[in-house]
Amino acid sequence: MKRMKVVLHFPKESVDKPLVYKLAKDFGLFFNILKAEVKPEEEGLLLVELEGSEEQCQEALKYIESQRVRVQPLSKDISMDKKKCVDCTVCVSLCPTQALEKDQTTGEVNFIKEKCIACGICVKACPYGAMRITF
């Protein structure tokens, strides 16, 4: 069995198709939606964890791509160096998945790895080099 996290970018015209349902029904995959941003008439984004045999996963992704959905595997890894972070919150407003959060009591910035889609904007934005990307 294989488990993998992928980000699915839906073009506007595919947002209303039940594509994820098909992953379960036609390809027998278990899936867990970690993050969804799907609005009518706009490009959609779905972060899903897939579980199935290697073959099932490959077939399913091939099908998804044939439906003009861009598949971004989460092979990159973002980490936060707490010693370098000054808790300024520059990254918080830029993170598209709220993986960087400000604790309203302490003012500290926390990194919630499970929500991260490794887009890398925080790495570019952090003035102190506290966010790192590894491949």
């Binding site: 808790d87 919150t89 520059v90 003012g107």
Partner: peptide, 24 residues
């Protein structure tokens, strides 16, 4: 400091360059 402002009917996420935690 709440993390969101509303302007022209739009909610805009805010980030601070100044560290409130360090200032405190």
């Amino acid at each position: 400091k709440s993390g969101t402002i509303e302007w022209n009917g739009k909610k805009i996420p805010t980030g601070s360059l100044s560290s409130i935690r360090k200032a405190r």
